[in-house]
Computed example of a mutant assay.
Amino acid sequence: MSEAPAPALPAAGSSFYLGMRILPKEKREAMFAIYAFCRAVDDIADDGGPRPERRAALERWREDIDALYRGEIRPVTAMLAPHIRPFRLERAHFHDVVDGMQMDVEEDIQAPDWATLDIYCDRVASAVGRLSTRVFGLADEPADALAHHLGRALQLTNILRDLDEDASISRLYLPREALLAAGMSDLSPAVVLAHPGLDAACREVAARARDHYESADLVMRPQQRNLVRAPRLMEAAYRGVLDDLLKRGFAAPRRPVKVRKDRMLAAFLRQLLP
């Protein structure tokens, strides 16, 4: 049995918390449980401890998830247990998330090629989307399509937002091809973030993120409005972050960009309208 403490709930002031408040109680509680799971495994990936210990902690989570699907509820999965059957949450999608965190544990990711970055985005973001879209109530085909595109859009936005924070722990998620095309040869984080070609490389990533946002919009457009209110809120929040990053640019010094509360509140109110 895992000895880890029960995962924490999202902070009341966070954009995720506000976005999920629009859901009915049973869906909101399911999303908070999924968030708690994701936060717990993400903390393992990012805590900076010895790699063998972090690998072991992730393996315990895999075992806990497997036990849950056998009907054995352990303390760390107690929040998830009530939601597995009602929302058809698949064990494989939980494992996908853990696999994504494993990529960060195995090595400090630095300038992966686009194919590897896409796998990473699928595991740490789109897999979360595959769980979430079932909670929202979408049918399997649009659920998977929305998770694919919106998950990648959000993760690419996060990568652009967190350049300096990631570099401080020896990580660089910008794709190798974009960096080479921008004239870089030394792909170590500190050198990349000081290179004059950084802005061009980041804008290539931003363009791909925009394409995914557009594709996510196409998926959501024909869906019942009440089923896509929460993902539309998250899209509005993070698309706004991407717009602000592009306005700011990527040359040092980089002013931090966060989800704007006024923009999030406006999006929240729009989703409440009939």
Rank of each mutant, 00 (worst) to 15 (best):
D104I: 01
A147E: 08
A125I: 14
E106T: 13
V97L: 08
A153T: 07
M101L: 10
S126L: 12
R123C: 05
L117D: 09
H148E: 15
C121D: 04
S126Q: 13
V98R: 00
G151L: 12
V124A: 03
D144K: 11
L156N: 03
V105W: 06
P86G: 08
E90C: 11
V98K: 00
S126G: 13
V124N: 03
L156C: 01
R123Q: 08
L150K: 05
E107D: 15
D99C: 03
V128F: 10
G129P: 13
R91E: 13
G137A: 02
R152L: 07
Y120D: 11
A147L: 10
L131M: 06
V124P: 04
D96V: 06
S132G: 02
S132T: 10
D144R: 11
L117M: 07
Q102N: 07
V98Y: 08
R88C: 10
A145P: 00
V128S: 00
D108E: 13
Q110N: 09
V128M: 09
D99K: 07
F87V: 06
V135E: 01
R134F: 02
P142L: 03
I119Y: 03
G137C: 02
A127C: 07
T116M: 12
D140R: 09
H95Q: 13
A115Q: 15
D99H: 12
P142C: 02
D118Y: 04
A92N: 03
I109N: 14
F94G: 05
A153V: 02
T133A: 06
